[in-house]
């Protein structure tokens, strides 16, 4: 389940704007209330796969202090993949909330 959530989580962060690996990790920590921590170097192969699949793009930028940093941004295909995943997860959440009596409404 956590594995399956990796891709929508990444895409959901990137839809707010382009970002780089370390920052993505920090945002995941924040959004999960500190509950979810990834093995950090392992994030990049996932980003690279999404890149190769055409869901995101990657660009090297040079910072003021001379450091190189790679930024990732979501593509149109990424957005439609996210929409797809979103409806899947919503259905799943709805089903589970019904089963657990949480009374969520589809938004």
């Amino acid at each position: 389940m956590i594995g399956a959530s990796t891709i929508p989580i990444i895409l959901s962060i990137l839809i707010e704007g382009e970002d780089y690996g370390y920052e993505i990790i920090k945002k995941v920590k924040t959004y999960s209330g500190g509950q979810l921590e990834w093995s950090e170097p392992m994030l990049y192969p996932v980003l690279h796969r999404l890149d190769r699949g055409g869901y995101i793009t990657a660009t090297w930028k040079v910072l003021d202090n001379g450091r190189k940093r790679k930024y990732y941004a979501i593509t149109a295909e990424g957005k439609s993949l996210l929409a797809e995943k979103k409806s899947e997860w919503q259905q799943m959440m709805l089903m589970l909330s019904n089963m657990w009596g949480l009374n969520l409404r589809p938004s």
């Binding site: 399956a4 891709i7 950090e40 392992m42 796969r49 699949g53």
Partner: peptide, 23 residues
Amino acid sequence: EDYEDLPEISGQYLSGRTTSDTS
């Protein structure tokens, strides 16, 4: 914290490059 098991991480990078499957 991040590099206790380098060979394993390296393996993941390698397989990440050689497969197009994202999941």
